[in-house]
Design a protein around this nucleic acid. Structure first.
Lengths: 148, 148
DNA sequence: TTCGATGTAACAAGCATAGTTACATCAAAA
DNA sequence: TTTTGATGTAACTATGCTTGTTACATCGAA
């Protein structure tokens, strides 16, 4: 392990909401979601907060409070989720500034930034090809064929 | 920040070795490399160790000891470097096993694994298109045009 | 007004990362 | 054969991120 699991949790949340939303459109609580994800409701709310800032979900308050999808599952791509989380790039540059007196130390950071930016673009383009609906369908496909 | 910088350091090392190797093919020490990267020689040796296991560099011992590239810079792609480091995937699955009594909790991990594996493939395909020679060329290009 | 959930701050435990010291090992050169 | 300087790796530390947790003010429909 080394990376964080926030994208996984976010997709899990949205996929679960998509499934539940098929039967009733009522808002769901962070508590119920946490039961499926198996974590603390605050962890769920933290991520839902980011998703709501980007318009993927909405929170309702008062009696019958909770969360609802702001778009149909087919209109939410994994790229939307990735962008909503606003994580930094997958690869970090140097922890300490490299030697600026060295030609490589001077020029490597901009060169690598370009590589990493390009990678991020490829990543996001690829993520855009899968929707929450796709993930839900794939998630529900497997458990049925229980033969090994 | 959040990700590690080992890929950055590894590429820096190889790029620096490629530049120095242009003038003389002599082995270079982890100490000299560390001066360009601005870190501790042990950090350099740790990464060189992984690169040598995958045949990208070779270490020489005795008098005049040090490191040399095992291939020309044009024959080393960033995918080779990425693979040599053997880092895990960019996105982690759940820290705690999701609720297996829930259809989503049960099926989401295999579904996401497929997504992440596919992402890794795209990533590596893209990395394969850039060589250390390319990075060196790009690294040396900028510093000359010092106008702002 | 009540009541249950949101939204967020604050803190703890566990890990990974990067840096550092120390030292055994090695092999070419003298 | 001895010297010498660098490799290769273990061990430890400081720092920061991640996740989990408690606590609580805020909100708004019933």
């Amino acid at each position: 392990m080394s990376a964080n699991s926030r994208l996984t949790i976010a997709i899990h949340i949205l996929t679960w909401m998509a499934l539940v939303g098929r039967k009733r459109p009522d808002p769901v609580t962070s508590n119920r979601i946490a039961l499926s994800v198996n974590t603390n409701p605050v962890v769920i709310r933290r991520i839902l907060g980011r998703l709501s800032k980007k318009g993927l979900v909405r929170s309702l308050r008062g009696a019958n409070a909770g969360w609802v999808l702001a778009k149909p599952p087919r209109a939410i791509t994994l790229r939307d989720v990735y962008d909503a989380l606003g994580e930094g790039p997958s690869f970090a540059l140097h922890a300490a500034t490299p030697n600026q007196a060295c030609p490589v130390g001077r020029g490597i950071r901009p060169a690598l930034s370009r590589v990493y930016d390009s990678l991020d673009g490829v990543l996001r383009t690829h993520l855009a090809r899968t929707t929450i609906e796709d993930v839900l369908a794939d998630t529900l496909r497997r458990p049925n064929l229980k033969r090994t």
